[in-house]
């Protein structure tokens, strides 16, 4: 690999952007495919498919190797609540870089969340610096529209791979009305997983955390969008 290509790849990774190193196996010739250069690549369809599946492998009838680099997944949890206390260690075990955001300083304390980054600010203040992106899951758990909804709207606009929100169907129906009034399309709003969590009959906060984590992993690994199944 040429040093300049390696440096460009590392720059993409540092910026949390997906990139694919395309290697012609017979000659060793290499190029970097990014969102910016993908369209002009002769293997564009195969590279796009590999990116969608987040999977490295051979292409071009075996003559080419596509090394897919996608950023490590993050999870931003809105609400320093009971479910979050269970979800934080589970999600970190599963490989997510997890952060909790809650402007209510009584909730967002290091004592309640040891070793977890906790941002005690409003979403509008904190999200620009956090940088939501397509490799981030947004899990909204406060039940409070003032806190959850700005984060949900921002996550939909940033095309987060998963957006889920706690609340009953009735709560969600009202949320949908407000998000539509705020200018979000029906298509974007339909991406919200609500009620949140895979339907495993979860009841306790820890069980709901399992249901949420399972749903996030399914979205990450299969690209599955919002489904009917729900736990809470």
């Amino acid at each position: 690999m040429r040093l300049d290509l390696l440096a460009a790849l590392n720059a993409e990774r540092a910026a949390r952007r997906a990139a694919v190193v395309v290697t012609e196996l017979a000659t060793g010739a290499q190029r970097l495919a990014t969102a910016a250069t993908l369209a002009s690549d002769p293997l564009a369809p195969e590279i796009a498919a590999a990116l969608a599946e987040r999977r490295s492998g051979k292409a071009g009838e075996g003559s080419v190797f596509l090394a897919v680099d996608v950023p490590p997944p993050r999870m931003l949890v809105i609400g320093a609540v009971h479910i979050s206390q269970a979800l934080a260690p589970m999600a970190r075990l599963a490989g997510f870089d997890l952060t909790i955001l809650d402007p209510r300083t009584a909730f967002a304390t290091p004592e309640r969340f040891p070793d977890v980054p906790v941002i005690a600010e409003w979403p509008e203040e904190a999200l620009p610096a956090y940088g939501l992106d397509p490799f981030t899951a947004l899990v909204a758990l406060t039940h409070d529209p003032k806190i959850d909804e700005p984060a949900i709207a921002a996550a939909l606009r940033a095309e987060c791979f998963y957006v889920g929100a706690l609340g009953s169907r009735r709560t969600h129906a009202k949320r949908v009305e407000r998000l539509a009034a705020a200018g979000l399309s029906q298509q974007a709003i339909s991406r919200i997983h609500a009620p949140i969590g895979m339907d495993i009959g979860a009841s306790s906060p820890a069980e709901i955390a399992v249901a949420v984590l399972a749903e996030v992993i399914r979205a990450l690994r299969t690209g599955a969008s919002a489904t009917a199944g729900a736990a809470a």
Binding site: M1, L6, A7, L9, N10, V70, P72, P73, G95
Partner: peptide, 17 residues
């Protein structure tokens, strides 16, 4: 997807430099 892989490529660049 792997944090370790990220470190690997950063190390490759650093070592070469």
């Amino acid at each position: 997807m792997d944090v370790t892989d990220s470190d690997v490529l950063a190390a490759a660049e650093r070592w070469r430099r």
